[in-house]
């Protein structure tokens, strides 16, 4: 059942625009919301790769997301909207950021690593706020969405499909990576670092590479997010966003990759539903999170997996 679950999720996501075109389910709002879910799922999935498989608890994964989004904004302000430029720039910038900060953060373990990644994300938050040309603290509204060699693949209904295809490809890629020699080594380091080091693996280099790959994927999610909202602001790098991504990973079940989609679905829908009921929705979401940590140990994707 669990082997089929990710395929079932993607099939369901692919059916939504079809069904709404046929009028079976309401169009308009639901595909928009699911588009947003898939963007966050992409970021959460990349976090799950380092967190679940690599055991690297990064509390700063909103930073590469924001860097990707700001790449869109800064290029847009300079009248560059082609994805063939935007995406490489975003990916490269986030990768370099992860390389530099990861090189420092990986010198520490555990709690220190959590705090340092959080601090570096906060650095991005403040740096973004000081970009006066790109809106500063108020954020930046895009002139126009990104295009792919002239195609408007980030507009309207096409956005849903672009997000879905990107998410699917990322899932295939990360799944392949997790099963590869590199992924096995990474998982081995999580389980027993000294042993892997004794076997001759360079644990530091493997973990750093994982951080860079995850940041690059998060940057693509950032490009999508900027287009989805047509807006970019320092809050994208805020600690609450990093926390949200982590919650998605945990609720979905750590290390499963596809669980991140369920987690993102749950978090975005819960915030949307609670937000519609009361503006004080964190008063419900917060305690629910505490209770989930205390009592629900393996996430929603884990409920089936543990019994099977």
């Amino acid at each position: 059942m669990n082997r089929a679950l990710p395929w079932a999720i993607f099939a369901a996501l692919a059916l939504v625009p079809l069904l709404s075109a046929l009028g079976v389910i309401p169009g308009g709002y639901l595909p928009l919301l699911l588009g947003r879910v898939m963007v966050f799922a992409l970021a959460a999935m990349s976090l799950d790769f380092i967190l679940g498989i690599g055991g690297l608890v990064s509390f700063g994964h909103a930073a590469p997301l924001a860097i990707g989004a700001y790449a869109v904004a800064i290029l847009d302000a300079n009248n560059v909207q082609d994805a063939l430029v935007v995406i490489p720039v975003a990916v490269l910038a986030a990768g370099l950021f992860a390389l530099a900060t990861g090189a420092v953060a990986l010198r520490t373990r555990g709690v220190n690593f959590i705090m340092i990644t959080l601090a570096f994300a906060q650095m991005v938050y403040f740096a973004a706020g000081s970009l006066a040309d790109y809106g500063g603290d108020d954020g930046y509204t895009l002139y126009s969405r990104t295009t792919l060699a002239g195609w408007k693949v980030f507009d309207g209904r096409a956005f849903y499909l672009t997000a879905l295809i990107t998410l699917f490809l990322a899932w295939l890629f990360l799944r392949m990576l997790a099963a590869s020699r590199f992924g096995r080594t990474l998982a081995g380091i999580r389980q027993n670092r000294p042993r892997m080091a004794a076997m001759g693996f360079n644990a530091y280099a493997v973990e750093l590479a994982a951080l860079v790959i995850a940041a690059m994927i998060a940057a693509i999610a950032g490009v999508l997010l900027a287009n989805e909202a047509e807006f970019v602001s320092p809050a994208y790098a805020g600690w609450a966003r990093s926390g949200d991504l982590m919650v998605m990973v945990i609720l979905g079940g750590v290390g499963s990759l596809h669980g991140a989609i369920l987690g993102a679905l749950l978090v975005v829908l819960a915030q949307e539903a609670l937000g519609g009921l009361t503006s004080h929705w964190p008063l419900v979401f917060g305690p629910a999170l505490v209770l989930a940590v205390l009592f629900l140990r393996h996430g929603i994707a884990g409920i089936g997996a543990r019994r099977g």
Partner: peptide, 17 residues
Amino acid sequence: DLDQVLATFGVILTLNE
């Protein structure tokens, strides 16, 4: 560490609100 971070993150959300 992860559980602790998440639970206390929930506490922050709750108390800020």
